[in-house]
Amino acid sequence: MLRKHTYSTMHPCVSLFLLCNIAYVRAIQCARTQDEWNKASASLKCQEPTYYHCLRDENGIMTQKCLERVWIQNGMCPEFNSRVDRIDVFQCQSDKNVCPNTIFWSNAVYIYPICYDKTIPTTTINSSAILLTSTETQVP
């Protein structure tokens, strides 16, 4: 006879498994030279019409994928949008003269390492600025 177990908290073995998975996650470091880019591209084995891309996603996580390349306008950087599985762009922000100054293919982003350094803006909410009120009216 099989017994059905119900756990009010996560099973210890599942917890251990999750901890082990987290311990072995390796951060992706995108290539910064054409030679490094070519080696990484060869390992992913992309085939036309897709090309090797190593891009930061909207959450700041680096990802390597085979994607169709797109033109990126000057002053912009490519970014992988994981929600729609496509390349988006963001405005390059730097005090130095290191942002893209010409259009380029998205798969050549290694030319502009500043594009890997995007910081994710954080939004803070001032709790005193939010006031929720409720009013009740009596309908005759």
Rank of each mutant, 00 (worst) to 15 (best):
D85C: 02
V109K: 03
T123I: 09
N74L: 15
E58I: 12
I61N: 05
Q93A: 13
D117K: 14
C92N: 10
E48K: 06
C30A: 08
S127V: 02
T122C: 13
P113Y: 00
S41W: 03
P100W: 04
S134D: 13
A40P: 00
I72N: 06
C20Q: 08
V84G: 02
V14L: 10
N101L: 11
S94M: 02
D35H: 15
T9F: 03
V25G: 01
Y112N: 06
Y112D: 06
A23T: 02
F90D: 00
N59D: 11
F104L: 01
N74Y: 15
D95L: 12
L131A: 11
R56I: 02
A23P: 00
F90H: 04
S15Q: 14
I87Q: 06
I72G: 04
A31T: 10
Q29W: 06
P12G: 07
M76N: 08
V89S: 15
M1A: 14
W105L: 07
I120H: 04
I28M: 05
D85Y: 06
D57G: 04
Q138N: 10
T33A: 02
C20R: 13
I87K: 08
C13W: 11
S8V: 14
C92R: 12
I114P: 12
T102L: 00
A31M: 09
C92M: 05
Y7T: 10
T135V: 08
A31H: 12
A129N: 14
L132Y: 04
L19N: 10
T124C: 04
I130L: 06
H11F: 09
F80W: 07
N107E: 10
N107H: 13
I22G: 02
A27S: 13
Q29I: 11
C54N: 14
Q138A: 06
M76G: 01
Q29F: 13
C99Q: 10
S43A: 08
Q47R: 09
N38S: 10
D95Q: 15
P100K: 05
C13M: 15
Q47P: 02
M76W: 06
R86I: 00
C13L: 15
Y51E: 14
C99N: 07
D35Y: 14
E79S: 13
T123Y: 08
L2V: 15
M10E: 11
S82I: 00
W71D: 14
F104D: 00
T133S: 11
F90T: 02
E48T: 02
L44N: 01
W37P: 06
I114S: 04
V70Y: 08
Q64K: 13
K45R: 14
H53V: 08
D88R: 15
N101R: 14
V109W: 00
V109L: 01
L2Y: 12
T135S: 06
A23D: 01
Y24T: 01
W37E: 11
S128V: 09
I120E: 02
A42G: 08
C54M: 13
Q29N: 14
T133W: 05
F104M: 03
Q34F: 01
Q64W: 03
V14P: 00
V98P: 13
M76K: 10
I120F: 00
I61K: 02
I22T: 00
C54E: 12
C54G: 15
W105V: 01
S41F: 09
C20A: 12
V14A: 11
Q47C: 03
